[in-house]
Amino acid sequence: MASTLSDLMLNDRGFAFDPASGETFQLSTTGLRLVRLLQQGMKPEEAVGYLVGEFEVDENTAWRDATEFLRALEQLGWISA
């Protein structure tokens, strides 16, 4: 059983520990940013907007990458589809 996103233990360098499953993960800088924004209850499209604002990336690329990333989070059971 996986934890929900809000239960994840994170450090500033992207290390993530899922206390429910006991598994450990590494998030990239932008991955960590997205997870933190989602933890605050932000909608994905809003979070991607932050990504474009904070990092040197165009909206299309950010969307493509974020979609894939969100799919990975779903597969981990951290967010629901």
């Binding site: 233990m9 450090n11 360098r13 992207g14 290390f15 520990f17 450990t24 590494q26």
Partner: peptide, 12 residues
């Protein structure tokens, strides 16, 4: 402890 793991994992 998971914090030791975190330090090695993140390169510290």
């Amino acid at each position: 402890r998971v914090d030791q793991l975190a330090l090695l994992t993140t390169g510290t």
